[in-house]
Amino acid sequence: MYITGGIAAYKAAYFVRALVKEGAQVKVAMTKAATDFITPMTLKTLSRNRVYTDDMLAYDEIVPHIEIADWSDEAVIIPATANVIAKMAHGLADDFVTSALLASNCPKFVIPAMNEKMLNNEATVRNIKCLKADGINVLEPDVGFLAEGYEGKGRLPATTVILEWINQKSKHAVLDDMRGKRVLITAGKTVEAIDPVRYITNHSTGKMGYALAQEAVERGAEVTLISGPTDLPKVPKVKFIPINTTSEMAREVNRCFEQIDIVVMAAAVSDYRVEKPATQKIKKKSDTLEMKLIKNVDILKDLGRKKKKQILVGFAAETQNLRENAARKMQEKNLDLLIANDVSRRDIGFGSDQNEVLFLRPGHEPLLIGKNDKKKIAQRVFDCIMDF
C-alpha cells in the first residue's frame, strides 16, 4: 500500500485497519510529503509491519523497493495525488514509492484524491487515461466537501466503496485470466528401484509443483498434475496422475502433451536409473556394492524438440554457478521460461515453504524473485507466462 502527500492521507489509516480486519497482510510505503500528514508510526501500529520511506533507499541489508515490489500481491495507491499519477504515467522513479511502483508487476489500484481543478486539468486527465491504457485500475473520485471549503469532485471514496471495488477488480483480473487454458504440471520426485526395498531419489517434496497447480486452478485453467510420491494432499479440481519412475512420468507427459497449452516441469526427476534392479533384497555381504547406472530419458529436452504451440517452462535446481548453468539449460532444452533456484541453501527450495528464484527468458534480462512463499512464487510464474 502506497500513501502519497494529500490531505486525504489520514484516511489511509482507516483503510489499513479495514484490510487487516479482513485478514490481509499489509505493508505500507509513504512519500516524504505523506509523512507530513500522518506519521509512519501510526501506519506501523495498524499494519503490524515496518513502514517504508525514502530513508529506506539507503538500507544496507536489502534492496527495499524491490523487496516490497516482489512481496506484494496487489499495490494500492491511496490517496493518489496528481503528482504521483503523473510520475506513474511517465515511468518516473525519483523516490521510494515511485521506485517500488515501477518495479511492481502485480495488479495496481489507484485511488485519486485531489482538488477538482487539479483532477480536471488536461494533464491529469491525460495521465489517468495513460494509466488505464497500461492496465492499471483507477477508481473514480467522489463528489463532496473538499479541503478547500467547497463542494467538488475529487474526494476520496469511503473505505467500504474502495474495498468492494478492489475485490471486484481483483476477482476479474486474477481468477479468470487463464480460463480456457490447458495446463500440465509435473511435481514431486521420481524414484528408481535398486531392489524391492531400496531406491534412488531426491529431496523434493512437491510443494512448488502443487502450489503451481493450485494457482493455475484458481485462475481458471484446466490443470493436469503428474506427480511423483509426496505427502501432500491432492489439489482440488485437478486431474491427478500419480507416477513413480522417470519413465512413467515421460509416458504420461507425452500422452497429454499434444492437447496442452502450457507445460510447467517442476518435478525433480532422477537423471539415472539402475540398469538391472535386483529382484530380491540385496544382502549385506561385503563392504562395497557396485551398481551400473544408465541415463534416463530427458523429458524436458524431448518436449523442447517437439513443441509447437505450447509454452514450455522448466526448473533448474543448482548448487553452484546458478545463472550460468540455468542459461545453458534454457538454451539446450528450448525453453520459453526457466526458473532456477539454489538448492544448497537450507532456507529455500526442497522441503521449504519458501523459495528464491531466478527467471530466465530468451531475449530478456534475468529477473530475480526474492525469497517468498511458494504460493507467491507460483503467482509470479503464471503472471510471467500470461505476459507471453
Rank of each mutant, 00 (worst) to 15 (best):
E252S: 06
E252N: 04
E252K: 11
V253E: 02
N254C: 14
R255K: 15
R255P: 06
C256Q: 12
C256M: 14
C256Y: 12
F257N: 04
E258H: 08
E258I: 01
E258M: 11
Q259E: 10
I260L: 05
I260T: 09
I260Q: 05
I260Y: 06
I260D: 00
D261Y: 03
D261K: 04
D261G: 05
D261M: 11
I262T: 02
V263F: 03
V263Y: 01
V264K: 03
V264H: 01
V264N: 05
V264L: 06
V264G: 02
M265I: 12
M265G: 04
A266S: 08
A266M: 01
A266P: 03
A267T: 05
A267Y: 08
A268R: 04
A268C: 13
V269S: 00
S270C: 06
S270I: 02
S270E: 10
D271K: 00
D271Y: 00
D271V: 02
Y272P: 00
Y272S: 01
R273W: 09
R273H: 05
V274M: 04
V274Y: 04
K276R: 10
P277I: 10
P277V: 07
P277D: 07
P277H: 09
A278S: 13
A278L: 11
T279K: 13
Q280T: 15
Q280F: 11
K281L: 14
K281E: 14
K281H: 08
K281N: 08
I282N: 04
I282Q: 03
I282W: 04
K283I: 14
K283E: 10
K283W: 12
K284Q: 14
K284I: 13
K285D: 15
K285R: 15
K285F: 15
K285E: 15
K285Q: 15
K285N: 15
K285C: 15
S286R: 15
S286I: 10
S286E: 15
D287N: 09
D287G: 08
T288M: 11
T288Y: 14
T288N: 14
L289W: 06
L289P: 02
E290F: 09
E290N: 06
E290A: 09
M291E: 07
K292F: 03
L293F: 12
L293N: 05
I294M: 12
I294H: 09
I294V: 14
I294L: 13
I294G: 01
I294P: 03
K295G: 03
K295L: 10
K295F: 08
K295C: 06
N296F: 05
N296W: 03
N296E: 12
V297T: 12
V297F: 11
D298N: 07
D298V: 02
I299P: 00
I299W: 02
I299N: 00
I299V: 06
I299L: 11
L300P: 05
K301G: 13
K301N: 09
K301C: 07
D302V: 11
D302A: 15
L303A: 02
L303F: 00
L303G: 02
L303V: 07
L303W: 00
G304E: 02
G304C: 13
